[in-house]
Design a protein around this nucleic acid. Structure first.
Lengths: 167, 167
DNA sequence: TATTGTTATACTCTATAACTATA
DNA sequence: TATAGTTATAGAGTATAACAATA
Protein backbone atom coordinates (compact mmCIF):
# COMPACT_ATOMS: atom_id res chain seq x y z
CA UNK A 1 0.00 0.00 0.00
CA UNK A 2 2.92 2.33 -0.43
CA UNK A 3 3.23 4.17 -3.69
CA UNK A 4 6.09 6.15 -2.27
CA UNK A 5 8.37 3.33 -3.30
CA UNK A 6 8.22 4.86 -6.76
CA UNK A 7 11.30 6.98 -6.15
CA UNK A 8 14.49 5.70 -7.60
CA UNK A 9 18.00 5.47 -6.19
CA UNK A 10 19.04 9.13 -6.03
CA UNK A 11 15.98 10.18 -4.07
CA UNK A 12 16.23 13.93 -3.78
CA UNK A 13 13.83 15.55 -1.40
CA UNK A 14 11.59 16.95 -4.12
CA UNK A 15 10.95 13.49 -5.49
CA UNK A 16 10.18 12.07 -2.07
CA UNK A 17 7.76 14.95 -1.54
CA UNK A 18 6.03 14.41 -4.87
CA UNK A 19 5.50 10.72 -4.25
CA UNK A 20 3.96 11.35 -0.88
CA UNK A 21 1.83 14.13 -2.34
CA UNK A 22 0.57 11.79 -5.01
CA UNK A 23 -0.16 9.03 -2.52
CA UNK A 24 -2.13 11.33 -0.22
CA UNK A 25 -4.12 12.86 -3.03
CA UNK A 26 -4.95 9.46 -4.46
CA UNK A 27 -6.06 8.13 -1.09
CA UNK A 28 -8.42 11.03 -0.49
CA UNK A 29 -9.63 11.17 -4.07
CA UNK A 30 -10.33 7.46 -4.19
CA UNK A 31 -12.40 7.77 -1.06
CA UNK A 32 -14.33 10.73 -2.45
CA UNK A 33 -15.06 8.87 -5.70
CA UNK A 34 -16.29 5.82 -3.81
CA UNK A 35 -18.56 7.84 -1.57
CA UNK A 36 -19.97 9.88 -4.46
CA UNK A 37 -20.80 6.66 -6.24
CA UNK A 38 -22.25 4.85 -3.23
CA UNK A 39 -24.19 7.71 -1.69
CA UNK A 40 -25.18 9.75 -4.73
CA UNK A 41 -24.66 7.45 -7.70
CA UNK A 42 -22.46 10.02 -9.41
CA UNK A 43 -18.84 10.63 -10.39
CA UNK A 44 -16.17 13.18 -9.59
CA UNK A 45 -16.26 14.92 -13.01
CA UNK A 46 -20.02 15.29 -12.77
CA UNK A 47 -19.65 16.70 -9.27
CA UNK A 48 -16.95 19.06 -10.54
CA UNK A 49 -19.07 20.33 -13.37
CA UNK A 50 -21.98 21.02 -11.03
CA UNK A 51 -19.64 22.76 -8.61
CA UNK A 52 -18.47 25.08 -11.37
CA UNK A 53 -22.07 25.91 -12.18
CA UNK A 54 -22.99 26.53 -8.57
CA UNK A 55 -20.33 29.21 -8.43
CA UNK A 56 -21.73 30.73 -11.63
CA UNK A 57 -25.51 30.76 -11.24
CA UNK A 58 -25.93 32.57 -14.56
CA UNK A 59 -24.36 29.53 -16.25
CA UNK A 60 -21.18 28.81 -18.19
CA UNK A 61 -20.53 28.14 -21.84
CA UNK A 62 -19.13 24.78 -22.89
CA UNK A 63 -15.68 26.16 -23.66
CA UNK A 64 -15.58 27.90 -20.28
CA UNK A 65 -16.39 24.63 -18.57
CA UNK A 66 -13.74 22.90 -20.64
CA UNK A 67 -11.08 25.39 -19.60
CA UNK A 68 -12.01 25.38 -15.94
CA UNK A 69 -12.22 21.62 -15.68
CA UNK A 70 -9.01 21.19 -17.63
CA UNK A 71 -10.50 18.67 -20.06
CA UNK A 72 -11.25 18.83 -23.77
CA UNK A 73 -14.56 19.97 -25.22
CA UNK A 74 -15.82 16.58 -26.30
CA UNK A 75 -15.68 15.34 -22.74
CA UNK A 76 -17.66 18.29 -21.45
CA UNK A 77 -20.36 17.50 -23.98
CA UNK A 78 -20.53 13.94 -22.68
CA UNK A 79 -20.66 14.87 -19.02
CA UNK A 80 -23.21 17.60 -19.69
CA UNK A 81 -25.39 15.15 -21.62
CA UNK A 82 -25.47 12.84 -18.63
CA UNK A 83 -26.36 15.66 -16.25
CA UNK A 84 -29.11 16.91 -18.58
CA UNK A 85 -30.52 13.38 -18.70
CA UNK A 86 -30.56 13.38 -14.91
CA UNK A 87 -32.39 16.69 -14.96
CA UNK A 88 -29.85 18.56 -12.84
CA UNK A 89 -28.50 20.95 -15.49
CA UNK A 90 -29.95 22.56 -18.61
CA UNK A 91 -28.64 24.17 -21.78
CA UNK A 92 -29.85 27.73 -22.34
CA UNK A 93 -29.57 29.68 -25.58
CA UNK A 94 -27.15 32.57 -25.70
CA UNK A 95 -28.47 35.86 -27.08
CA UNK A 96 -26.53 36.95 -30.12
CA UNK A 97 -24.60 33.73 -30.73
CA UNK A 98 -26.60 30.81 -31.93
CA UNK A 99 -23.61 28.49 -31.81
CA UNK A 100 -23.16 28.73 -28.06
CA UNK A 101 -25.02 27.50 -24.97
CA UNK A 102 -25.05 28.58 -21.41
CA UNK A 103 -25.22 25.54 -19.12
CA UNK A 104 -26.70 26.09 -15.69
CA UNK A 105 -28.08 24.15 -12.73
CA UNK A 106 -31.79 23.46 -12.61
CA UNK A 107 -33.63 24.03 -9.34
CA UNK A 108 -33.46 20.32 -8.73
CA UNK A 109 -29.77 20.34 -9.59
CA UNK A 110 -29.04 23.07 -7.07
CA UNK A 111 -30.82 21.10 -4.37
CA UNK A 112 -29.06 17.86 -5.26
CA UNK A 113 -25.67 19.52 -5.42
CA UNK A 114 -26.25 21.14 -2.04
CA UNK A 115 -26.69 17.75 -0.42
CA UNK A 116 -23.59 16.36 -2.07
CA UNK A 117 -21.50 19.40 -1.19
CA UNK A 118 -22.43 19.10 2.46
CA UNK A 119 -21.25 15.49 2.57
CA UNK A 120 -18.22 16.21 0.47
CA UNK A 121 -17.16 18.91 2.87
CA UNK A 122 -17.44 16.54 5.79
CA UNK A 123 -15.22 13.95 4.08
CA UNK A 124 -12.59 16.57 3.38
CA UNK A 125 -12.65 18.05 6.86
CA UNK A 126 -12.13 14.53 8.21
CA UNK A 127 -9.21 13.93 5.86
CA UNK A 128 -7.35 16.94 7.23
CA UNK A 129 -8.44 16.68 10.85
CA UNK A 130 -4.89 15.88 11.95
CA UNK A 131 -3.73 19.38 10.95
CA UNK A 132 -4.09 22.46 13.14
CA UNK A 133 -5.56 25.63 11.60
CA UNK A 134 -2.06 27.05 11.40
CA UNK A 135 -0.80 23.97 9.60
CA UNK A 136 -3.69 24.11 7.16
CA UNK A 137 -2.83 27.71 6.41
CA UNK A 138 0.86 27.06 5.84
CA UNK A 139 0.05 23.98 3.75
CA UNK A 140 -2.22 26.14 1.62
CA UNK A 141 0.50 28.73 1.11
CA UNK A 142 3.09 26.15 0.13
CA UNK A 143 0.71 24.81 -2.47
CA UNK A 144 0.22 28.33 -3.73
CA UNK A 145 3.89 28.52 -4.65
CA UNK A 146 3.74 25.19 -6.47
CA UNK A 147 0.62 26.24 -8.31
CA UNK A 148 2.22 29.43 -9.48
CA UNK A 149 5.26 27.55 -10.77
CA UNK A 150 3.02 25.25 -12.79
CA UNK A 151 1.03 28.08 -14.25
CA UNK A 152 4.15 30.01 -15.20
CA UNK A 153 5.53 26.90 -16.81
CA UNK A 154 2.31 26.36 -18.67
CA UNK A 155 2.12 29.86 -20.10
CA UNK A 156 5.80 29.68 -21.06
CA UNK A 157 5.17 26.52 -23.01
CA UNK A 158 2.06 28.06 -24.57
CA UNK A 159 4.08 31.12 -25.48
CA UNK A 160 6.75 29.05 -27.15
CA UNK A 161 4.13 27.09 -29.03
CA UNK A 162 2.51 30.30 -30.24
CA UNK A 163 5.89 31.56 -31.33
CA UNK A 164 6.68 28.38 -33.24
CA UNK A 165 3.30 28.26 -34.88
CA UNK A 166 3.44 31.92 -35.85
CA UNK A 167 6.97 31.64 -37.20
CA UNK B 1 -8.10 26.90 -15.61
CA UNK B 2 -9.10 26.98 -11.97
CA UNK B 3 -10.45 23.84 -10.45
CA UNK B 4 -10.44 25.54 -7.09
CA UNK B 5 -13.82 26.93 -7.98
CA UNK B 6 -15.18 23.57 -6.91
CA UNK B 7 -15.71 24.69 -3.33
CA UNK B 8 -19.21 25.66 -2.38
CA UNK B 9 -20.54 28.53 -0.35
CA UNK B 10 -19.39 27.66 3.17
CA UNK B 11 -15.76 27.25 2.19
CA UNK B 12 -13.99 26.16 5.30
CA UNK B 13 -10.23 26.13 5.19
CA UNK B 14 -9.91 22.38 4.82
CA UNK B 15 -12.01 22.42 1.67
CA UNK B 16 -10.05 25.29 0.18
CA UNK B 17 -6.86 23.39 0.94
CA UNK B 18 -8.15 20.21 -0.67
CA UNK B 19 -9.17 21.95 -3.88
CA UNK B 20 -5.80 23.59 -4.24
CA UNK B 21 -4.08 20.31 -3.43
CA UNK B 22 -6.08 18.59 -6.12
CA UNK B 23 -5.38 21.30 -8.67
CA UNK B 24 -1.64 21.23 -8.04
CA UNK B 25 -1.43 17.46 -8.15
CA UNK B 26 -3.41 17.32 -11.36
CA UNK B 27 -1.27 19.97 -13.02
CA UNK B 28 1.95 18.15 -12.21
CA UNK B 29 0.53 14.73 -12.92
CA UNK B 30 -0.87 15.79 -16.28
CA UNK B 31 2.51 17.14 -17.25
CA UNK B 32 4.25 13.94 -16.17
CA UNK B 33 1.78 11.80 -18.14
CA UNK B 34 2.23 13.91 -21.25
CA UNK B 35 6.02 13.79 -21.06
CA UNK B 36 6.08 10.05 -20.39
CA UNK B 37 3.92 9.53 -23.45
CA UNK B 38 5.79 11.92 -25.72
CA UNK B 39 9.32 11.08 -24.70
CA UNK B 40 9.05 7.41 -23.76
CA UNK B 41 5.78 6.23 -25.28
CA UNK B 42 4.61 4.90 -21.94
CA UNK B 43 2.09 5.60 -19.20
CA UNK B 44 2.16 6.48 -15.52
CA UNK B 45 0.94 3.07 -14.26
CA UNK B 46 3.61 1.33 -16.33
CA UNK B 47 6.22 3.69 -14.96
CA UNK B 48 4.93 3.04 -11.44
CA UNK B 49 5.14 -0.70 -11.82
CA UNK B 50 8.71 -0.50 -13.09
CA UNK B 51 9.61 1.84 -10.24
CA UNK B 52 8.34 -0.71 -7.74
CA UNK B 53 10.49 -3.36 -9.37
CA UNK B 54 13.58 -1.19 -9.42
CA UNK B 55 13.34 -0.88 -5.67
CA UNK B 56 13.01 -4.66 -5.41
CA UNK B 57 15.60 -6.16 -7.75
CA UNK B 58 14.71 -9.68 -6.66
CA UNK B 59 11.22 -9.08 -8.03
CA UNK B 60 7.73 -8.82 -6.61
CA UNK B 61 4.75 -11.14 -6.73
CA UNK B 62 1.60 -10.00 -8.46
CA UNK B 63 -0.31 -9.52 -5.23
CA UNK B 64 2.54 -7.48 -3.78
CA UNK B 65 2.46 -5.23 -6.83
CA UNK B 66 -1.30 -4.95 -6.51
CA UNK B 67 -1.09 -3.83 -2.88
CA UNK B 68 1.74 -1.38 -3.46
CA UNK B 69 0.16 0.19 -6.52
CA UNK B 70 -3.24 0.32 -4.85
CA UNK B 71 -5.05 -1.31 -7.74
CA UNK B 72 -6.77 -4.67 -8.10
CA UNK B 73 -5.08 -7.81 -9.31
CA UNK B 74 -6.61 -7.97 -12.76
CA UNK B 75 -5.12 -4.61 -13.60
CA UNK B 76 -1.65 -5.67 -12.57
CA UNK B 77 -1.93 -8.62 -14.91
CA UNK B 78 -2.80 -6.30 -17.78
CA UNK B 79 -0.04 -3.80 -17.12
CA UNK B 80 2.49 -6.58 -16.61
CA UNK B 81 1.45 -8.18 -19.89
CA UNK B 82 2.18 -4.95 -21.71
CA UNK B 83 5.58 -4.58 -20.07
CA UNK B 84 6.45 -8.19 -20.85
CA UNK B 85 5.51 -7.58 -24.47
CA UNK B 86 7.85 -4.60 -24.48
CA UNK B 87 10.59 -6.79 -23.06
CA UNK B 88 11.24 -4.66 -19.99
CA UNK B 89 9.97 -7.05 -17.30
CA UNK B 90 9.75 -10.83 -16.99
CA UNK B 91 7.80 -13.37 -14.94
CA UNK B 92 9.99 -15.78 -12.96
CA UNK B 93 8.82 -18.98 -11.31
CA UNK B 94 8.72 -19.07 -7.52
CA UNK B 95 10.32 -22.06 -5.85
CA UNK B 96 7.84 -23.99 -3.77
CA UNK B 97 4.67 -22.31 -5.05
CA UNK B 98 3.71 -23.06 -8.60
CA UNK B 99 0.77 -20.65 -8.45
CA UNK B 100 2.92 -17.56 -7.98
CA UNK B 101 5.33 -15.51 -10.09
CA UNK B 102 8.04 -13.11 -9.25
CA UNK B 103 8.00 -10.19 -11.68
CA UNK B 104 11.29 -8.38 -12.18
CA UNK B 105 12.99 -5.94 -14.53
CA UNK B 106 15.02 -7.31 -17.40
CA UNK B 107 18.44 -5.83 -18.09
CA UNK B 108 16.89 -3.80 -20.85
CA UNK B 109 14.08 -2.75 -18.52
CA UNK B 110 16.54 -1.50 -15.90
CA UNK B 111 18.31 0.57 -18.50
CA UNK B 112 15.10 1.97 -19.94
CA UNK B 113 13.72 2.78 -16.51
CA UNK B 114 16.95 4.52 -15.57
CA UNK B 115 16.56 6.95 -18.45
CA UNK B 116 12.95 7.65 -17.58
CA UNK B 117 13.68 8.09 -13.90
CA UNK B 118 16.36 10.65 -14.64
CA UNK B 119 13.95 12.73 -16.70
CA UNK B 120 11.12 12.20 -14.27
CA UNK B 121 13.24 13.48 -11.45
CA UNK B 122 14.07 16.62 -13.41
CA UNK B 123 10.39 17.34 -14.06
CA UNK B 124 9.59 16.96 -10.38
CA UNK B 125 12.49 19.05 -9.18
CA UNK B 126 11.32 21.79 -11.54
CA UNK B 127 7.78 21.56 -10.23
CA UNK B 128 8.91 22.26 -6.67
CA UNK B 129 11.72 24.68 -7.43
CA UNK B 130 9.84 27.55 -5.81
CA UNK B 131 10.16 25.88 -2.40
CA UNK B 132 13.19 26.15 -0.15
CA UNK B 133 14.66 22.97 1.38
CA UNK B 134 13.03 23.88 4.67
CA UNK B 135 9.68 24.33 2.98
CA UNK B 136 10.01 21.00 1.22
CA UNK B 137 10.71 19.34 4.54
CA UNK B 138 7.77 20.91 6.31
CA UNK B 139 5.49 20.15 3.34
CA UNK B 140 6.60 16.53 3.55
CA UNK B 141 5.81 16.36 7.25
CA UNK B 142 2.37 17.89 6.82
CA UNK B 143 1.58 15.28 4.20
CA UNK B 144 2.76 12.62 6.62
CA UNK B 145 -0.01 13.55 9.02
CA UNK B 146 -2.62 13.45 6.27
CA UNK B 147 -1.35 10.11 5.09
CA UNK B 148 -1.57 8.65 8.55
CA UNK B 149 -5.15 9.86 8.94
CA UNK B 150 -6.11 8.16 5.69
CA UNK B 151 -4.44 4.92 6.65
CA UNK B 152 -6.04 4.89 10.06
CA UNK B 153 -9.40 5.54 8.46
CA UNK B 154 -8.81 2.76 5.99
CA UNK B 155 -7.92 0.16 8.58
CA UNK B 156 -10.86 1.23 10.73
CA UNK B 157 -13.22 0.67 7.81
CA UNK B 158 -11.54 -2.65 7.05
CA UNK B 159 -11.87 -3.62 10.69
CA UNK B 160 -15.55 -2.83 10.71
CA UNK B 161 -16.05 -4.76 7.52
CA UNK B 162 -14.28 -7.77 8.99
CA UNK B 163 -16.43 -7.52 12.07
CA UNK B 164 -19.63 -7.35 10.06
CA UNK B 165 -18.62 -10.19 7.82
CA UNK B 166 -17.56 -12.40 10.73
CA UNK B 167 -20.72 -11.67 12.75
C1' DT C 1 -11.75 31.70 -42.25
C1' DA C 2 -12.34 31.15 -37.36
C1' DT C 3 -15.10 29.64 -33.55
C1' DT C 4 -18.66 26.79 -30.90
C1' DG C 5 -20.03 22.69 -29.98
C1' DT C 6 -20.97 17.72 -31.26
C1' DT C 7 -19.91 13.22 -32.92
C1' DA C 8 -17.05 9.29 -33.70
C1' DT C 9 -13.29 6.67 -32.39
C1' DA C 10 -9.82 4.55 -29.83
C1' DC C 11 -7.13 3.78 -25.87
C1' DT C 12 -5.85 3.45 -20.95
C1' DC C 13 -7.15 2.50 -16.54
C1' DT C 14 -10.27 0.78 -13.30
C1' DA C 15 -13.30 -2.54 -10.41
C1' DT C 16 -15.98 -6.70 -10.19
C1' DA C 17 -16.70 -11.31 -10.59
C1' DA C 18 -16.13 -15.83 -12.50
C1' DC C 19 -12.58 -18.93 -13.42
C1' DT C 20 -8.19 -22.19 -13.27
C1' DA C 21 -4.55 -24.11 -10.94
C1' DT C 22 -2.29 -24.96 -6.88
C1' DA C 23 -1.77 -25.02 -1.75
C1' DT D 1 -11.29 -24.25 1.64
C1' DA D 2 -8.14 -20.68 0.71
C1' DT D 3 -4.84 -18.40 -2.17
C1' DA D 4 -2.31 -16.74 -6.64
C1' DG D 5 -3.18 -15.21 -10.71
C1' DT D 6 -5.91 -14.73 -15.11
C1' DT D 7 -9.78 -13.73 -17.95
C1' DA D 8 -13.96 -11.39 -19.24
C1' DT D 9 -16.73 -7.60 -18.94
C1' DA D 10 -18.34 -3.09 -18.38
C1' DG D 11 -17.78 1.61 -17.46
C1' DA D 12 -15.25 5.95 -16.62
C1' DG D 13 -12.23 9.14 -18.37
C1' DT D 14 -9.39 10.95 -21.74
C1' DA D 15 -7.49 12.90 -26.26
C1' DT D 16 -7.81 13.40 -31.19
C1' DA D 17 -9.87 14.51 -35.28
C1' DA D 18 -13.59 15.15 -38.47
C1' DC D 19 -17.78 17.52 -38.75
C1' DA D 20 -21.99 20.97 -38.82
C1' DA D 21 -23.63 25.34 -37.83
C1' DT D 22 -22.79 29.95 -37.13
C1' DA D 23 -19.82 34.11 -36.74
Amino acid sequence: MDMEARGHSEHPEALRLWLRLLTCTQLVEKQVRTQLREQFDTTLPRFDLMAQLERNPEGLKMNELSRRMMVTGGNVTGITDQLVAEGVVERMEVDGDRRAYRVRLTTRGRKFFGEMARQHEAWIVAAFEALSPREVESFYKLLGKVKQTQQTLKSTVAGLTDKLETA
